[in-house]
């Protein structure tokens, strides 16, 4: 009888489930306003800590905060613009002597959202500056603007097969 009582008591205990506790509403968070800052601006330097945010593809990783970074054949960057009229696109870059020896003169073709913007031919290595006025119909202020620069010849590293285009320094849109 005693054993039966113990078993019954254990069974009763097993049937118990704790009641969940009550909680008060917590401190209220501010209501979201449905707007957010733009993730990138209209100009980027490769030594900026935010440079990665501008890169869509084709720019190799470099030393943190280095002044320049290697590109592959077709680097693509993105920018947010606050206006679209009267803007010039520019790019500062370097054609490295070490790669120029192998590629010889190169042509770089620039495009915005896949539409041609212009091109330039470079017959010698060193620092280069490209600049071109951009028709307003190629630009938008509501979405990121993607700009690509495709170089016709690249240096292919014999060690790892990496394709190197040029050293990108700075690019963006300005008045």
């Amino acid at each position: 009888m005693f054993r039966l009582l113990i078993i019954a008591a254990l069974l009763c205990l097993g049937a118990c489930a704790p009641e969940p506790e009550w909680y008060a509403p917590p401190m209220q968070r501010a209501t979201l306003r449905g707007v957010e800052p733009r993730p990138v601006g209209s100009v980027v330097s490769m030594d900026s800590p935010l440079a990665d945010a501008y890169i869509v593809s084709g720019v190799l990783k470099g030393d943190p905060l280095s002044r320049w970074r290697w590109t592959s054949q077709r680097p693509e960057l993105r920018f947010y613009l606050t206006e679209t009229k009267g803007l010039k696109f520019f790019m500062d870059f370097v054609l490295a002597e070490a790669t120029f020896q192998f590629t010889g003169p190169v042509t770089v073709r620039f495009s915005i959202g896949g539409k041609p913007l212009g091109s330039a031919h470079y017959g010698k290595p060193g620092e280069q500056h490209y600049e071109v006025e951009v028709p307003g119909n190629l630009l938008t202020a509501s979405e990121p603007v993607k700009v690509a620069a495709e170089v016709d010849k690249v240096y292919v590293s014999p060690q790892d097969g990496a394709k190197l285009g040029f050293l990108l320094v700075r690019a963006g849109f300005e008045q």
Binding site: E36, P37, R38, P39, V40, L50, D52, A53
Partner: peptide
Amino acid sequence: DYMANAAL
């Protein structure tokens, strides 16, 4: 996304 949208 952290990298591309650090500001956000």
